[in-house]
Amino acid sequence: MITAERKPLEEILAYIKPFKRILLLGCNECVTVCAAGGRKEVGVLASGLQMSRLKDGSSIDIREHTLERQCDPEYVEELVPMIDSADAVLSMACGCGVQQLAMRFRDKPVFPAVNTKFMGGSDRHGVWTERCQGCGDCLLGLTGGICPIAKCAKHLMNGPCGGSAGGVCEIGDDVDCAWHLIWERLKALGLTDQYMEIMPAKDWRPAGGGGPRKIIREDLAE
């Protein structure tokens, strides 16, 4: 999933300062699961913004709404009947959702209320870690299911750097060395031969180095 965290209230308040009527939008997908921008978080943010204004002797008109998915035009269309009664839109979806809104409602200022962090998974309740950087040419089949791009600070392709010690990465004690993990896993799977294969220099164009990426499914696209 895509993970996110709410921005500091101060930053959000600065964005919406000139506006009186705000449409505050959550998303039912990733940001709900990582407790950053679902229906609940929309309510919490709305109340916080309202109280910030109330304590300054003013108030704000906030309409709360949570879309099934903010990155799909079908769902964004739902907002048409309510968009005119808002001076600005505040989105708690990831950057994809925010941009979908900005594209659809060109005459409305749209602001992000969360910082989109990374593609990750949940380690345990309340803890998420980065797993994939969308490199466009997945290597997991060669690395025992552990990503050397997302989980190694140097994106190394052929084993650990000199900073790997006792399974720990040199960037910090709480960071596992990805290549240590890969080696242990390949050993457990009896696939150490795979480790001996030298990986050629990675082509970073599919990772975004070749410009904004796009997928066209001929069978689906109209």
Partner: peptide
Amino acid sequence: RYLEEIGI
């Protein structure tokens, strides 16, 4: 912590 952010 949130109340502190709000200014309460």
